[in-house]
């Protein structure tokens, strides 16, 4: 082993990349040659200093925190988004469902007819009409009176964000009942027959056990509902009322 070869091998020894046999051979030369020994020492020293110097470069304490924060945020954002969107959609659907069925949709006429918890029970039509805020008098209900139907009770069905529904119930001594409903404009019942009464189109029909008749006035829709009288009978009774209220 000469000095030139030894120089080439010094790094390989320090890198632990030389075989044991070559290792021993080179080290033996280094021990006997002061020039090579100096090169060996210089390389070893440089390497040691480099290790100390570069090894002294440490990540700041904040760096790890920042990394964890960044990845946590990314993680949360990744999983949070779909959860957040789903929650919003569920909330919106719930609100939509709630308002649609509870507040926005008109009650069915038979549901109105079945209302029994009257806010005011009286056979005084003026008192009842005052309660619901509709200008009704005895003349309007004269045909009902002739048919032995007299006022029984009144109710205001208050609906949030929507106009109220008002109703007066009339009964005769046989227990037959007619509900006179004052509905906000836009109440539609499909598949009904039409009849002209005093120049007003009156829609009428039956569904299940209930009979209906309704017409539109300038500010509201007015409906009659009964299980006991057919639509034509109801229209006859309501004739003075049509086009008057």
């Amino acid at each position: 082993m000469d000095c030139k070869n030894t120089e080439l091998y010094i790094d390989a020894i320090l890198d632990n990349e030389l075989s044991v046999k070559d290792n021993l051979e080179v080290l033996s030369h280094i021990r006997s040659c002061s020039d090579c020994k100096e090169k060996w020492d210089l390389n070893e020293e440089t390497r040691a200093e480099l290790k100390i110097f570069v090894g002294s470069i440490k990540a700041s304490k904040n760096l790890q925190k920042e990394i964890v924060k960044k990845n946590n945020y990314k993680n949360k954002r990744f999983y949070f988004r779909p959860a957040f969107i789903s929650a919003c959609m569920i909330l919106m659907l719930s609100i939509g469902f709630f308002f649609n069925y509870t507040y926005l949709q008109f009650p069915q006429l038979h549901e109105l007819h079945n209302v029994v918890d009257y806010q005011l029970i009286s056979n005084d039509i003026e008192l009842l009409s005052k309660h619901i805020g509709i200008n009704l008098n005895k003349e309007h209900l004269s045909a009902f009176e002739e048919g032995m139907f007299s006022p029984h009770g009144a109710v205001n069905i208050n609906r949030p964000f929507n106009k109220d529904i008002k109703m007066i119930t009339l009964k005769n001594d046989k227990g037959h009942k007619i509900s006179l409903c004052f509905l906000p404009k836009g109440y539609k019942i499909s598949n009904l027959n039409k009849t002209q009464v005093n120049g007003v189109t009156v829609h009428h029909g039956s569904k299940d056990d209930f009979h209906f008749a309704y017409w539109e006035s300038k500010v509201m829709d007015i409906a009659l509902v009964s299980q006991d009288l057919n639509p034509i009978e109801m229209i006859d009774l309501a004739e003075p009322l049509i086009n008057e209220v």
């Binding site: 470069i57 440490k58 990540a59 700041s60 760096l63 990394i67 990845n71 990314k74």
Partner: peptide, 27 residues
């Protein structure tokens, strides 16, 4: 982390850039 920082420093020669590089690497 320290090894990454050292390698990044050797690449960037600047501590601030090295930290940015390490952060980006970790992401």
């Amino acid at each position: 982390l320290d090894s990454l920082m050292q390698l990044a420093y050797m690449k960037c020669e600047n501590r601030e850039l090295a930290e940015d590089l390490v952060q980006e690497t970790c992401v």
